[in-house]
Structure formats: C-alpha cells, structure tokens
C-alpha cells in the first residue's frame, strides 16, 4: 500500500508539470495581452520599463520557470508565514494580479470562503439526498419509486444548472418573493437574524447544485447496490435468516459504498470548478466568478493560477480516490 501510494505520488509530478506547461503556454499566447493596451504615444523606453515592471520582457520559458518557482516555493512560504507568523519568504516575489495589483493567492483566499460555504453545503446535501434514493431504488428495482428516482436523476444531469438556477429564481424569487436573487457576500453570521438571512440567500444556489450532484451520485449508488444484491453473500446472509434490514444496511451497503466513496472523492474538485456557472447566476463573489472576471479583462496571472489550482485539485483527488479504493477494498490492493 505504501509503495503504491509513493509510486502514485511520484507519477503525479510529471502529470502536474505537463498540465502546468499546457496551461501556462496556452494562456501566454493570449492575443489580449496588456502590452497591446499601452498607448502608442508612450515613448519606447518607458514602454520597455513598463514591460519590465510587469515581468513581461523576459523570454517565455524563463517566465514559466519563474512562475513555477513562485507557485511551488514562494507562495507556500508566504502561507507558512501567515500561519505561524515567521518570515521565511523574506519578501520574495509573489504572483501578482495585473488588474488589482494584489497577490493572486490573497485574492483567492478572499474568494474561497464563499465558494466553499455554498458549494460544500450543496455537495453534502446532494450526497445525503442521493444515498437513500439510490439504495431504495436498487432495492425495489423497477418499482414506481425506482422509475421516479431514475427519471429524477436523468432529469438532474440533463437539465443544465443555468436553466434550473434561472427557473428557481423566476419562481421563488421573482414570482413568490421568498428568497433573494443575489448572494450578499458581506453578510456576517453573528446572530439568529443574520443566520436566517444567510440560510435564505444560500437556499436557491444550494438547491440547484445539490440536485445536480444528487442526480449523479444516486445513479452510481443504484448501480452499485444492484450489482451487490445479486452476489452470493447476500443469498447466504438471507439463508442464515438475517432480517432484510441487516442484509441491506450492513452487508450490501458497506460493499456497495466503496465505488460511491471514490466517485464522491473524484467529484470534489468540481465543487470548486463546476460552480463557475452557479456563481455567475446568483452573483456569488467566489473563485469561479474571479476566474470569469479575470478572463474578461485578460488578467493572465489570475487565469493561470486559478486554472492550475483546479488541475492540482483534480490530480490530488484522483490520488485520494485511488488510495481510498485500496484501503476500503482489500481485494484491490495494488502491491
């Protein structure tokens, strides 16, 4: 298990390097570079100084290595400094946003809590809805509950979130007036009143995302429980005279949750990335909105960093899913 984990960790390094190169060079070929926005009246020597100040005068491979060093060395040092109050970084160069002149990681730190609150809640609720539906659908295969559940899950990932989101806004915010349409990022939960307002503004985006996540997870749960229900050990358990409750909830559930757990782990990066659309609809000031905003003003460092962070998260959770699978299912140890 340990060797397997180590090998996968080592394999992740070239993958990440390759992805970082793809992202960096693709974004760097952007025609919308801020250099082209410098007015022509600016004298050439001033222009050269401006470019030097933005670090854009060096050849592209030097900038790539510099960016990698900033991403993997300087920024973690600043992170440690911020946590422990030390001074390891000693003023090393950080990745700076061209638009706001603020370190990109500080920007992300400001945006991340909103994304995590809304998307994390939605994912959790999605899992909590999906598991019972998936299990019961499989247990009563082809019953009306199963048909309804299957239809619900097919609906869930066929109807795009930008439509469900707007539909919910239309019905519950515009027509009924129950919920606010726009998420207020400045709201701090201090007492019951602000907690209530927080819950109200989170209700719609969380519903949209929870339904979407629940659709996918319940499908996997159903398939996995179905597969296990036909196994020999279930017949044995029933033959021993165990109650249906024990058979289903102890024997079948434990085994069928193994692939579901890995699916949940694999889906976690989309909690960060897939929320781009939802944040746009409900005007949540999160990390996805930061990416879209940066794309529209061609703020290259922010685009590169956020996209690469998403990639790191995907690789990381792939690794976690693989290891979890090995831990949970002794038949699939990779030694």
């Amino acid at each position: 298990m340990l060797t397997f984990t180590l090998r996968r960790l080592l394999l992740a390094i070239p993958t990440l390097l390759l992805i970082s190169a793809v992202i960096f060079f693709m974004v760097d070929f952007a025609p919308g570079s801020p250099m082209s926005d410098i007015p022509l009246t600016v004298p050439p020597e001033v222009r050269a100084k401006m470019m030097a100040a933005m670090g854009a005068d060096k050849p592209v491979h030097i900038r790539y290595i510099l960016w990698m060093k900033q991403f993997f060395w300087n920024e973690p040092l600043y992170g440690i400094d911020a946590l422990l109050g030390t001074d390891f970084a000693q003023g090393a160069q950080r990745i700076i946003s061209w638009q706001s002149k603020v370190p990109v990681f500080q920007l992300i730190g400001e945006r991340l809590p909103q994304t995590l609150t809304v998307m994390g809640t939605a994912y959790l609720i999605g899992i909590l809805i999906a598991l019972p539906i998936g299990i019961y659908s499989a247990y009563r295969q082809y019953s009306w509950f199963d048909l309804a559940g299957t239809f619900f899950s097919t609906m869930g990932f066929s109807v795009p979130t930008f439509f469900t989101g707007n539909l919910l806004i239309l019905i519950f915010a515009v027509k009924m007036g129950w919920f606010p349409t726009i998420y207020d990022t400045n709201l701090r939960v201090t007492d019951w009143d602000s907690f209530y307002r927080m819950a109200m503004q989170m209700a719609l985006p969380v519903t949209v995302l929870a339904l979407f996540n629940a659709a996918e997870i319940s499908r996997y749960t159903r398939a996995s429980v179905l597969e296990n229900l036909n196994q020999d050990y279930v017949r044995t358990a029933r033959a021993k005279g165990m109650t249906e409750k024990t058979v289903l909830l102890k024997h079948v559930l434990r085994n069928s949750l193994i692939p579901v757990v890995t699916i949940i782990a694999l889906g976690l990066p989309t909690v960060f990335g897939g929320a781009i659309v939802t944040e746009q609809i409900f005007k949540i000031n999160g990390i996805g909105a930061a990416l879209i905003g940066a794309i529209h003003v061609s703020d290259l460092p922010v685009i590169q960093t956020i996209t690469f962070i998403f990639a790191v998260l995907i690789v990381l959770f792939n690794l976690i899913a693989d290891i979890l699978y090995g831990i949970l299912d002794p038949r699939i140890r990779y030694d």
Partner: peptide
C-alpha cells in the same frame, strides 16, 4: 482527464 476542462474551454474561447 486531469485537466480542468470548463475553465480551460473558457480560456480557449477567450484566447
């Protein structure tokens, strides 16, 4: 498979 597809698609379209 490890690429963040939606952000990358957005960047590609924009570029």
């Amino acid at each position: 498979l490890a690429l963040p597809l939606l952000p990358l698609l957005l960047v590609m379209m924009f570029l």
